[in-house]
């Protein structure tokens, strides 16, 4: 195996792993605070990508500029969606199952809406950075005598990685150093107790929903930087990755998801490199099932088995 490919897989592992970490983190904010697995999360993320796409093709706005707009717009939309949907759920016979079904319905609507607006084709996002690629280093004689191999990384991915790092540092700071962040963490630990302490759980939950949606939107924009083509039907694949990450990192454990995301990024890149295609696709699912049965609390978390 070429040394260049191994380096590429390592770089890919970090770049994608960080994106996965973000996906898992936002899913876990919901899983922790609301006890909801958002089946529409993949679609939320794709919607973020399309948001960047629409601003780029419509107004010529660079994805980097649409990032903050997207964050705010999705936050507002998420809170709106929360008040529209969730309070009614509490009255249902089976709030948990109902919430899954509800988000399942929302995901179908989002897929249909995106297919309708942007059509079923995969959309390319033709923004550019200058230079397009950055050469990290050159490996001499990588492909045999005299044929050197260059380890490249697209500039867009470096940018995405850096932004991603800032967001993750910001999130960690938010969760551990700010009052609302601590309240969110407290709510993931004990939803009943936090109400006794006088926190309005609806307000907090809507904040969580808004935050998770906003993060999903941001993830979508970053994903568009990393892979500049958008598939309205790609939500299920993204959701599956998200599930693997949150299970691996411990359900409802936003920080566990960060580590799990990076781990899974590496696992995925290297299994793509080393395994036949069909087998590589299954790796994530196998991890998912194995962790659930062998260590349901995740690699870092606590047990949430019912």
């Amino acid at each position: 195996m070429s040394e260049v490919l191994v380096w590429n897989a390592m770089i890919g592992g970090i770049v994608f792993g960080m994106v996965y970490a973000l996906i898992g983190c936002s899913l876990n904010v919901l899983a922790g605070v609301l006890r909801v697995i958002n089946f529409a999360h993949g679609e939320f993320i794709i919607a973020g990508s399309f948001f960047a796409y629409a601003l780029f093709t419509g107004l010529g706005l660079h994805p980097l500029l649409s990032l903050p707009i997207c964050a705010v717009a999705f936050f507002v939309a998420g809170r709106g969606l929360y008040y529209l949907l969730v309070p009614r759920l509490a009255r249902s016979d089976e709030p948990e199952t109902s919430s899954f079904l509800l988000m399942f319905g929302v995901s179908l609507m989002l897929i249909a809406a995106m297919t309708w607006i942007f059509e079923a084709d995969i959309r390319p996002l033709n923004f550019t950075f200058d230079p397009i690629n950055v050469t990290l280093f050159t490996i001499e004689n990588a492909y045999g005598e005299g044929r050197h191999g260059r380890v490249l990384i697209p500039t867009a991915r470096i940018v995405a990685l850096v932004i991603n790092l800032f967001i993750i540092v910001g999130l960690t700071w938010y969760f551990y150093r700010t009052l609302p962040g601590k309240a969110l963490r407290a709510a993931t630990m004990n939803r009943e107790a936090i109400q006794i302490v006088g926190i309005n759980i609806h307000r907090l939950s809507s904040m969580a929903f808004g935050l998770a949606t906003s993060l999903a939107g941001i993830t979508g924009v970053l994903l568009a930087l990393v892979i500049p083509s958008i598939d309205p039907n790609g939500g299920a694949d993204i959701a599956l990755i998200g599930f693997v990450v949150i299970v691996l990192g411990g359900l409802g454990h936003p920080v566990g998801a960060l580590f799990a995301g990076i781990i899974f990024g590496f696992v995925e890149q290297f299994s793509n490199l080393m395994l036949p295609q069909a087998a590589a696709q299954m790796v994530g699912f196998i991890i998912l099932v194995a962790v659930i049965f062998l260590k349901p609390s995740g690699l870092f978390g606590r047990s949430v088995l019912r």
Partner: peptide, 16 residues
């Protein structure tokens, strides 16, 4: 498993 895990595994199974 029930609950969340059952939902996740079941949905993922179909995708995979």
């Amino acid at each position: 498993l029930g609950g969340i895990y059952f939902a996740i595994v079941s949905l993922s199974l179909a995708v995979i």
